[in-house]
């Protein structure tokens, strides 16, 4: 059984208007998304801004209300579970936030920030708690002496590590990483990413990795889902998506990954033009009248693509 299964997840936000603030329409931020993640794997969710990838992550952890669909975590449906049970489940799902500057309370010392989950779930004495916090700090590569500092005394990368230390404090099973490195310097990105992979092995973590950066996704993920306007356009293993993209949208995304070798520049440019031409030609076939992708069709056991209705 997979660790987490998301079935036909929908998150709609009401649009209010008029004199009485009645609900006029819905923003379909997430409109029927299904995927599952195996224990110990990394699942990548890619898409442009507003494609609903962050909303999906937030719905799983309970920050956004689920309109319909199921989120099965170890067989328990998170959308219908009662509050008491939810408190236990919450311990196993943690989140790493995008912005390391606003996700740490500026008035709290690192010791208090990292200890927050421990205080909620584990009854530790002050000394045990301090030792545990220092262990966590060492685990994320920060000096254990730094726990009496305030967040503003750290750099962006260090702050993100503090965020990670907080997320792994309760030994969770699933970590939702919402663009964990997009607010960081490129030189620090690799450092944080490699470190995330290290602790994944060490603690047998499962990641739901949300990003718009395909390079990072390729580096990190076993399976990838590509989202567009709240729906999936393609889903498969990392290998399948990158070597054999089937949907024109995926092809364009992959063509947009910059190539660092200057000798290939011309070739890369030509390739991009070709992909663009194909996209323009086939756009009407691949998206319905509202510009939304069609439902997924399997082309292999692991690979599904939102191919046009008619062949």
């Amino acid at each position: 059984m997979s660790l987490i299964e998301v079935e036909n997840l929908k998150v709609h936000f009401p649009v209010r208007g008029g004199i009485f603030q009645t609900v006029k329409d819905h923003v379909r931020a997430v409109d029927g998304v299904s995927f599952s993640i195996e224990q110990g794997q990394t699942y990548g969710l890619v898409g442009e801004s507003g494609s609903g990838k962050t909303t999906t992550g937030r719905a799983i952890i309970g920050l956004n209300d689920i309109t319909s669909g199921k989120v099965l975590f170890e067989g328990k449906d998170l959308s219908t579970i009662n509050k008491k049970e939810y408190i236990d489940v919450r311990k196993d799902i943690q989140m790493i936030f995008q912005d390391p500057f606003s996700s740490l309370n500026p008035k709290k010392r690192v010791a208090d920030i990292v200890a927050e989950p421990l205080r909620n779930y584990e009854n530790l004495s002050a000394k045990e708690e301090r030792i545990r916090v220092q262990e966590l700090m060492e685990l994320v590569g920060l000096s254990p002496e730094a726990i009496y500092k305030y967040p503003h005394e750290f750099s962006g990368g260090q702050r993100q590590r503090i965020g990670i230390a907080r997320a792994i404090a309760l030994n969770p099973k699933l970590i939702i990483a919402d663009e964990p490195v997009s607010a960081l310097d490129v030189s620090v990105q690799a450092q944080v990413l490699n470190f995330m992979r290290e602790i994944q092995k060490e603690l047998n973590l499962t990641y739901l990795f949300i990003s718009h950066d395909l390079g990072i996704i390729r580096h990190m993920c076993d399976h990838i889902g590509i989202m567009y306007k709240g729906r999936y356009v393609e889903h498969g293993t990392s290998e399948e998506i990158f070597t054999n993209p089937q949907h024109i949208y995926t092809k364009r995304l992959i063509a947009a990954i910059p190539d660092s070798n200057p000798r290939n520049r011309e070739m890369h440019y030509e390739n991009r033009k070709l992909v663009k031409a194909e996209y323009d030609k086939l756009e009407k076939d691949f998206f319905d009248e509202e510009g939304l992708p069609f439902s997924l069709k399997s082309i292999s056991a692991t690979h599904q693509v939102a191919l046009p209705e008619r062949g």
Partner: peptide
Amino acid sequence: ELDYVKASKTLGTSDFKIMFFQVLPNLS
């Protein structure tokens, strides 16, 4: 609306505690 409040929620802190021990110090 800041992420640290959302983070506290995902860490299982109660609304009461978030209000008076996380948000209030920032309004001091």
